[in-house]
């Protein structure tokens, strides 16, 4: 169901790139009241440098008030190959949506 390689990381194994700094995924909260959103990724030797690089790379124009950095290898992703089977259970349950229900015209606040 899941694979160790997260959504946006390269297929090249880390062992093939011994000198390269690890990859980090960057999430930015653009302002108070909003959740963190994936902004992109970057390379950095450690978490502290990843944060600093993320600030310089993704918030040069005050795009954020808070940043998370996560090692890309720590992201577990569903596999797109199994998309249909994995998300299928939600496919046949239209009654989970308010538009499924018929309410007579004129009834208000529903």
């Amino acid at each position: 169901m899941t694979t160790p390689r997260p959504a946006d990381t390269p297929a090249v194994p880390a062992a093939a790139r011994p000198t390269e700094w690890p990859l980090w995924e960057v999430f930015v909260r653009s302002r108070r009241g909003l959740s963190h959103t994936h902004a992109g990724s970057l390379h950095a030797p450690d978490a502290a440098m990843a944060l600093r690089n993320a600030r310089d790379l993704y918030t040069r124009r005050s795009e954020g008030v808070s940043i998370w950095v996560v090692p890309s290898t720590q992201v577990t992703a569903s596999s797109p190959d199994e998309k249909d089977a994995f998300f299928e259970p939600a496919g046949d349950k239209p009654y989970r949506h308010p538009t499924f229900y018929e309410i007579p015209d004129g009834v208000q606040h529903l």
Partner: peptide
């Protein structure tokens, strides 16, 4: 200086995008 710094940033966004295709930064 801000413009030249932006160009560096643009390069980094694009290298990251290329890396999602299975190449590496070093390569």
């Amino acid at each position: 200086m801000a413009k030249v710094q932006d160009e560096a940033g643009h390069g980094l966004y694009l290298y990251s995008a290329a890396e999602t295709l299975g190449t590496s930064r070093d390569e």
